[in-house]
Design a protein around this nucleic acid. Structure first.
Lengths: 107, 107
DNA sequence: TGTCAGCATGTCGGATTTGACATGTTGGCG
DNA sequence: CGCCAACATGTCAAATCCGACATGCTGACA
């Protein structure tokens, strides 16, 4: 699926009007959903590994327990920024972050 | 320094500096800056590789040329969300995105 | 030299995201 | 059973971010 999708989008001169006419999820939208899901899962897993409660993580982030719950639920009201900040707050670096993003979903 | 933030840093187990703390970023803040820089560079590089102008990418994103310029400049008014959406709009998948995040800073 | 494409920077109204709070659910323990 | 910690869900004012626009800069080309 990766090569196919990339081949289509790789064309620098793709017709822009087409995107608006597409009703289904675009490849980019699908990828964004995938990314959000992975980051949400990463937050939940890493937090558990560190034995930190949602409330404690919230304190680290200067946020609230409810928002951390929304992060892990992949709630629409949560931006990528907040998800990433949560992972960094848990002590991850960009390398580890990349690992969670790119690794095959197995576990 | 913001007392609230101080509490947050303390809760995360970090030392709180004093007068010159605006120079001493927390590990999380440093990582976030690094990540933003990497993504900004990725957008500029991938866009160039695909021979797409800022205006064309803006069109794909439903945005404006000026905002794409800000993305590549790492402007504060640009969120991670927008940066990631720009890369996805250029045809990258989460795997490739992870590559840009985690790879050693080449050149 | 004039002009044009491409990119950069500043600002603003409106849209999105945030922290906080209220409230509900679940599971463990005495 | 009651109690409590941990987590989930909904709402809202305020903070942040977005797209759009105006405008400036630079290098290429005739």
């Amino acid at each position: 699926m990766d090569p196919n999708k990339q081949a289509r989008l790789a064309a620098a001169g793709w017709k822009v009007g087409d995107a608006a006419d597409f009703l289904a999820l675009s490849p980019a939208e699908t990828e964004l959903v995938e990314i959000r899901h992975r980051l949400a899962e990463a937050v939940r897993t890493v937090r558990a590994e560190h034995q930190v409660t949602q409330a404690q993580l919230a304190r680290i982030l200067g946020s609230s327990q409810s928002r951390v719950a929304k992060i892990e639920a992949g709630d629409r009201s949560v931006s990528l920024d907040l998800m990433v900040r949560a992972l960094l707050g848990l002590g991850l670096g960009h390398q580890e972050l990349a690992g969670w993003l790119g690794a095959k979903s197995a576990a």
